[in-house]
């Protein structure tokens, strides 16, 4: 297919979104504080982890983009 590499990029983004969801639900979701006062700290930690996930997602996507569209493969 003429534009297979662009489709590969779309599929890579889809896979990263699904995987990120899995981490959010299975790793971050179950974390809870022992008492109500600690809930704010846990929420802040979850928010920081979510931002970290997004940063990692963008980094991984940049690497995938470089791999898919590198001149050697063109």
């Amino acid at each position: 297919m003429r534009h297979a590499r662009v489709y590969a990029m779309v599929v890579a983004m889809w896979a990263l979104m699904i995987a990120g969801g899995g981490i959010a639900v299975n790793v971050l979701g179950p974390i809870h504080a022992q008492d109500e006062s600690g809930e704010a700290a846990v929420s802040a930690a979850k928010a920081a982890a979510a931002v970290g996930l997004v940063v990692a997602w963008v980094w991984a996507l940049s690497r995938i983009k470089s791999a898919i569209f590198s001149p050697r493969r063109a």
Binding site: I18, G21, G22, A24, V25, N26, L28, G29, S43, A47
Partner: peptide, 18 residues
């Protein structure tokens, strides 16, 4: 509740604003 396909939902009352 933010739904992630295949895995379920996370309850994020404050973060959902973002």
């Amino acid at each position: 509740d933010l739904a992630f396909p295949l895995f379920g939902e996370v309850h994020i009352p404050v973060l959902y604003v973002g």
